[in-house]
Every structure is written in structure tokens, then in C-alpha cells.
Design a protein around this nucleic acid. Structure first.
Length: 583
DNA sequence: CTCGAAAACC
């Protein structure tokens, strides 16, 4: 079935469509239009076709937007014989979230080529309708790698990685994009280690990585805290000269990887050497500094960004700025910036700004003011907001406010209850601890198991709380016992106030020997290279006991330990932590 | 004309 060759009107139509839908898919960067097409645009206007909507630099992203009645225009111009035009329309409807309309176009076509099917599958995969995507997939006469990849990507987006993996393994003739789709799909579903394994397999099978691959692999390193792997990717790209230079996107991904793996110096190094930086780049740098405890440097960086003048700060920039203020305890500076965001910079406050502000105020003990912000904010406070208040309450031992926060939270997760319970324990209110336990059981609240990962010689090991499955478990256990006895000599006492990450686990084991970060630290002492920092990434917050443990290990064994917790970094050196015990 | 792809509150 030979597709019909498009005529001039087709291109005119495609151009309009593209203009009309550009704002529906802003993440895709459109290449500049070649001059010939620009002429077409003028001609299209002369034909009294509907003018393309104005392209805005930062369009808000509506889930659904109305498309001009282009379908009617398609018929009017007599473009029905051209598959390409229908396909483009299917894609446009799909991108705007109007899958039903896409399907109508699809069903109305007299002939369909592979692209039609692929576009339709992709449309269903954008919207998460896996069943329909599969139904169309079954009907494709000659699936190409594109068809398969669309399915893989769609399944990943819908969260069914296992099935995506099956499709991926079964597909004939994988191309680079297929690998990329699977790698980034794994990263997006919190399986960075598997993503890196796949990346290695891809190289072993002789595929040459492209931008997408590198971006996917770097974000896998972020997820797993794989600094060595990240460095290796950096070196690999340089050695193979995969790209002419690290542009804004690649450079941002690289520096973000370094920052999120706790290597701020390397991140700064990348940052200074980039030949062009956009807002994202600055944001990643500011945020990276703030997360790593370099609050003052983060604020300096923001000032430099303003002086630089080539980029404009956006919402995310101020999240970094507020985060820096919060971690540095700069309440007044933070308050000032918070009020400037709208007034001076003309940026609308979003819920995340309020969360940062509440965090800043609550953390520094201004609990009443934080509560006032919450009650006065224009949008409905979400869990994160209440959680920020709650963790401030824990730091400053305000039981009453903490109870308010938990009760206001819709569907509080296990961590929230644990936080409240820790607070009860800290002030010695054991009946409260019991209440929390009962509430959790009656509501059947799912516990998130603690998980830490550590990279040793370029391979990443994951530990779950209380997990005994690691092949070197007996050695790890022996190491923990050794650490324990050396600590006792130093007069270390277990801090029982915050014993439980996980209520039932605590019942099973009275000792704290099995929080995942302890396993990982012990393993780092055994397997890591001496004098090289032990780097750990964990999914939950640090408990006070493990934080103490890490400090002491850094002192006793003279090893730097870097732990990335859910929100920030802890750099332990000789018994002190960069967070100043304030997290 | 179709698949992947950088920053973001606890």
C-alpha cells in the first residue's frame, strides 16, 4: 500500500496543525522552521485560514485543549486521500488529550499506513489507556520497531513495567529509541538499577547511545546514586565524542547528576565549563547547592543568575532559593524572597512555594506563622504542606500542632504517622504511641520499606530494611556487631525515641541493627575502597539513631559518608554532619 | 507524519 504523496495543501495543513498544537506539547522542542515553510505560513494566511494561536514562551499546560475545527478543514481542502494528514491530526488530537477524536479520525480513514496505527497507539499510551492501545496493536498488519516502542513506552507510563519489559524482550529489530524508551521507563518506575543494567546490555550489544540514551542513563544514576557510573558515562561520552558539546539539556542533566550524587564540586565544574546555560541549568545548580547544604553558595548563585542577565528566573528557581534559605535557617531572607516572587519577579506562587515557605518557617520554630500561611494560602493545602509543618513540630516538640497537621492530612502515609509517634515517644507520651499504632493498623496504612543503595566498584547494591538476602549478609552482620562494640567503647547509646520507621518491624526486632542505611554503611566499610567516601542513597528520611550511627562511623573509621535522604544530603566527616543535626 | 529525551515542595 503506497502512501499518497502529499501536495502543497497538505504541507499547509500540517503547518497549521503544528502551530495549533505546539502549545499542547511544549516539552518537545520544535526545530526552527525552514524558510520555505515560513513562506507557506504567509500563504496560509492569505487563504483566510484560521490564524495560528500565538506561541507563548512558557505556555501553561492544559490537559485538554480545544483544537480548531481542523478536521472539517481537512475535508474542505480535499485532503482525505493523504494518510499523512490524517496521521498528523490523530497525533494532534492525541497530544491534546482528545483520544476519542483521534480515534474518530483513525476509524474514518479509508486506508491506514503503519504510521496511522503507531500514532493511534501513541495516543492511547499518552492517556494511559493500555487496553485500547493493545487492541490497536493487535490489528497492526506489519508492526515496526516504532510500533513496539510505542507500546513499551505506553506501558511504562501506565506503570506496568513488567509487561513493558515483556514487549521489549519480544520485539524484533530493536533500535536505539526502543532501548531509550525501556531505560527511561525503568527510571520512571523507580528501577534505576535495572535501567543501568539495561544500559550496559545495550552497549554490550553494540548500540551507539544518543542524547536520549545518555539522558536516560544519567537520570538512572541520579535515582540510584551511582556517582561512579555517572562519571563513567561522562568519560565515555567525551572519549567517544558522542556529541559536539554538552548543550544546555545534556549539560543540565550531567550537572544535576553530579549534584544529586553529592559531588557538588564536579557539578560546579560542569556548570562553569558549559558554553551555554538556560534557566533549567541555573535551577539545577542552585537546587544542587541547596540540597547539599551549601545554602550561602546557593543564594550567591541566584544573585549571579540575576547579574548574568541572559536567563530569567522561574518558579523552580525560587523553590531552590527557598530550599537554600530553609536548610541554612535564613528565615528573614527567605521571607523576603517569598514576598518578592510575585511582587518583584511577577511569578505566580504555586503550592510548592508555600510548601517551601512552611518548611522554612516550621523548621526554624515559627510554627504559628507557618500555620497562618497554611490557613491563608489561596489553594487547598496538600499532604506535603502539612507534612512540612509536621516535621517542624517534631523538631520543636509541639505535640498539639503535630496532631492538627496529621488530622488535616488526607491519607497520611506511614511516614507521617511514624513522625507523630516519634514525637509522642520523644516527649514520653506512650499512650500516644499506642494510639498511632492502632490507627495505622485499623486504617491498613501501607508501610513504605526503607531502602538504601550503595555503589561499590561501579555496581549498585540495594538494601531493604531488615533485609537478609544480600549474598554478603553474614559479613555485614559481623561488621555491624564490630561497629556496635567499638561504638560502645565510645559511649554510644541507642536513641530509642525514634526507633521506628516501621511499626511492625520494630516489634519484631528490638535492635535497630537493620535499618537499610546501616546495612549499606556496613557494606561500604567492607567492600568500598579505603579513603573513598561511602555514598548512599535512601528513600526515606534519616532516623535520629541512624544519623548518630553515621556520625560515629565517620569518626571511628575516618571515612567520609555521604547520604542522600528523601530531600537533602548529609555529608558526614569526622563525627559531624553538614546538616548540623537539623533536618 | 509515528517511538525516547534536562530543573521542581516533605
Amino acid at each position: 500500500m503506497k502512501p499518497s504523496r502529499p501536495n502543497e495543501d497538505c504541507f499547509r495543513f500540517l503547518f497549521l496543525l503544528r502551530e495549533a498544537t505546539a502549545s499542547a506539547a511544549p516539552r518537545r522542542r520544535l526545530p526552527p522552521w525552514p524558510p520555505r515553510r515560513r513562506r507557506l505560513r504567509r500563504r496560509a494566511q492569505a487563504l483566510h485560514l484560521p490564524p495560528p494561536p500565538q506561541l507563548r514562551p512558557r505556555p501553561p499546560r492544559p490537559r485538554r485543549r480545544r483544537l480548531p475545527p481542523l478536521h472539517a478543514l481537512l475535508v474542505k481542502l480535499g485532503l482525505q486521500p493523504y494518510e499523512r494528514v490524517h496521521n498528523a491530526l490523530i497525533q494532534a488530537y492525541g497530544a491534546a488529550g482528545l483520544v476519542a477524536d483521534a480515534r474518530r479520525v483513525f476509524d474514518g480513514m479509508s486506508r491506514r499506513d503503519t504510521v496511522s496505527f503507531n500514532s493511534m497507539i501513541h495516543g492511547y499510551a499518552t492517556s494511559g489507556d493500555v487496553a485500547s492501545a493493545r487492541e490497536v496493536f493487535e490489528r497492526v498488519p506489519a508492526p515496526t520497531p516504532v510500533t513496539w516502542t510505542s507500546m513499551v513506552a505506553g506501558l511504562c507510563r501506565a506503570g506496568d513495567v513488567a509487561l513493558a519489559r515483556r514487549f521489549f524482550e519480544e520485539m524484533p529489530g530493536r533500535d536505539v529509541v526502543s532501548w531509550n524508551a525501556m531505560i527511561s521507563g525503568l527510571v520512571g518506575n523507580h528501577q534505576p538499577v535495572e535501567a543501568l543494567d539495561l544500559f550496559r546490555r545495550m552497549l554490550a550489544e553494540g548500540f551507539v547511545p544518543n542524547r536520549g540514551t545518555v539522558l536516560g542513563a544519567l537520570s538512572a544514576c541520579v535515582g540510584a546514586g551511582g556517582l561512579e557510573t555517572g562519571k563513567w558515562i561522562h568519560a565515555f561520552v567525551e572519549k567517544k565524542k558522542l556529541f559536539r558539546w554538552w548543550d544546555e539539556i545534556l549539560g543540565t542533566a550531567l550537572l544535576d547528576m553530579y549534584a544529586k550524587c553529592g559531588a557538588v564540586e564536579l557539578a560546579l565544574d560542569v556548570f562553569t565549563k558549559l558554553r551555554s546555560r538556560d534557566t533549567h541549568t541555573w535551577n539545577a545548580m542552585i537546587n544542587g547547592l541547596a540540597m547539599n547544604g551549601y545554602s550561602t553558595k546557593a543564594l550567591d548563585m541566584f544573585r549571579q543568575m540575576e547579574l548574568d542577565g541572559t536567563v530569567v528566573p522561574d518558579e523552580v528557581t525560587f523553590l531552590g532559593v527557598l530550599l537554600a534559605c530553609s536548610h541554612g535557617g535564613f528565615v528573614d531572607v527567605g521571607r523576603e524572597y517569598f514576598y518578592m516572587i510575585e511582587k518583584k519577579y511577577g511569578i505566580g506562587l504555586v503550592i510548592e512555594h508555600y510548601a517551601c515557605m512552611v518548611d522554612l518557617l516550621a523548621r526554624s520554630g515559627h510554627l504559628q506563622e507557618a500555620h497562618k500561611i497554611i490557613t491563608e494560602m489561596p489553594m487547598k493545602p496538600d499532604r506535603v504542606i502539612w507534612r512540612a509543618l509536621l516535621s517542624g513540630c517534631r523538631l520543636h516538640r509541639d505535640v498539639k500542632m503535630a496532631e492538627t497537621a496529621v488530622s488535616e492530612m488526607e491519607a497520611a502515609c506511614s511516614g507521617d504517622h511514624v513522625l507523630l509517634s516519634n514525637l509522642y515517644a520523644a516527649v514520653g507520651r506512650w499512650s500516644g504511641v499506642e494510639d498511632v499504632r492502632r490507627t495505622m493498623r485499623s486504617k491498613g496504612i501501607e508501610k513504605i520499606p526503607g531502602c538504601s543503595s550503595i555503589e561499590i566498584n561501579g555496581s549498585i547494591h540495594e538494601f531493604m530494611s531488615g533485609d537478609k538476602s544480600h549474598p554478603s549478609y553474614s559479613e555485614i552482620h559481623a561488621k555491624l556487631v564490630e561497629i556496635g562494640s567499638r561504638m560502645q567503647l565510645q559511649g554510644y547509646v541507642t536513641e530509642t525515641a525514634e526507633v521506628f520507621h516501621d511499626v511492625e518491624e520494630e516489634e519484631k526486632e528490638q535492635a535497630l541493627g537493620h535499618h537499610s542505611e546501616k546495612l549499606a554503611i556496613a557494606f561500604g566499610l567492607i567492600g568500598g575502597t579505603p579513603n573513598v567516601a561511602i555514598r548512599i542513597v535512601k528513600n526515606l528520611r534519616f532516623c535520629a539513631d541512624c544519623h548518630n550511627f553515621a556520625k560515629l562511623v565517620s569518626q571511628i573509621y575516618h571515612r567520609e559518608i555521604v547520604v542522600r535522604d528523601r530531600v537533602r544530603f548529609h555529608h558526614f566527616v569526622e563525627g559531624t554532619c553538614s546538616c548540623n543535626d537539623f533536618w
